[in-house]
Design a protein around this nucleic acid. Structure first.
Lengths: 177, 177
DNA sequence: GCTAGCATGTAAACGGTTACATGATTAG
DNA sequence: CTAATCATGTAACCGTTTACATGCTAGC
């Protein structure tokens, strides 16, 4: 998820690590800093892999900026990760939303639709959080008001997400029949 | 989150690790197995810390079951974790939903309300995912349909969650004025 | 003079994933 | 007979968090 965000934001424009960090921090909605201990090692990994180019530039403070940009390989890597997302990015809503943030970078609408369809198929599998005697419990059957709330909220989110996915998939299929 | 789930489920009834695993797996909604490599070490940590008692019992298969139960210290630990959740559990929706699953275990409605209020306060901070020229971008201003969708879905979820939190807090305050 | 912001990093500890390892029972 | 389920664990790897480390500039 961190890697995808890095590649995704750098595909828009070259950035130095500090600026990249503030953008990634915002991706959670509420600004929550990405730890440097995660970001800088990730950047080094991507640089070693040949996905990133660095260029030194004078910064506002004392330390010079390391302006980062995607190499052609880095761009290819981003496209590959968007076309064929890892399981977590389909399965985990937070990860999927981050994926969505960059899915517009995929050039082919059919590929975009395929990704959305994967998510939709996953969501269409019946979900249940609790079991009693081996049978799934519905929200109405739970006495605990917190569990009831949890189930209701999860269901509402799921409904809204599926509706959007279906509408968006229809639009994309209209674009490239 | 794993630790909380372990303590939470064991507070309901003693379970062996295998059964515990299937319950925790269900907590994501869609059954996704908890890796043994995470579960067993976590159980060992909790056992070493004195939160868990083990009792050997014959199982259905060859391997005998290690039936796990909460010690009084384990129960106290659960209550403490519920009363004073870590930041992630307030901040991350998935984690918060897991917390919710066990919040009914807190004996005091005022404590329950305090936790919900913490989440509500966090959610009431204005959220924005993208910035242009330092100003937050609204869904309507985004040209990218995927980002627009992402922002719309996040906003809808946020609205529903806040509404539920407010209603539930009101109910709890009514219970213990 | 001090704090916040700009700007970069490293090291230790922790926890999770993946793969490995074993073995009995039951249903198809 | 073979796959799934029951049942327990370990080891290597990988990435994240937390804490440490440094230093300049701008505004109060």
């Amino acid at each position: 998820m961190l890697t995808l965000s890095i590649l995704g934001f750098l595909a828009e424009e070259p950035l130095h690590a500090y600026e990249l960090r503030t953008r990634i921090s915002g991706l959670s909605g509420h600004v929550r800093p990405v730890s440097d201990g995660a970001l800088y090692p990730a950047l080094n990994r991507l640089h070693k892999a040949g996905f990133l180019a660095r260029e030194e530039m004078p910064g506002r403070g004392a330390t010079p900026r390391q302006v980062l940009s995607l190499t052609p390989e880095g761009h290819a890597e981003l496209i590959a990760r968007l076309r064929e997302p890892a399981d977590v990015e389909i399965t985990d809503r937070n990860s999927f939303l981050v994926l969505l943030a960059f899915l517009g970078r995929l050039p082919n609408p059919a590929d975009q639709a395929r990704v959305l369809r994967r998510r939709l198929e996953f969501m269409n599998q019946p979900a249940s959080y609790f079991y009693a005697d081996g049978r799934p419990l519905r929200a109405a059957e739970t006495a605990d008001p917190f569990r009831k709330g949890m189930l209701t909220l999860a269901a509402a989110t799921s409904r809204a997400d599926r509706a959007w996915l279906e509408a968006m998939i229809a639009t994309l299929e209209h674009e490239s029949p």
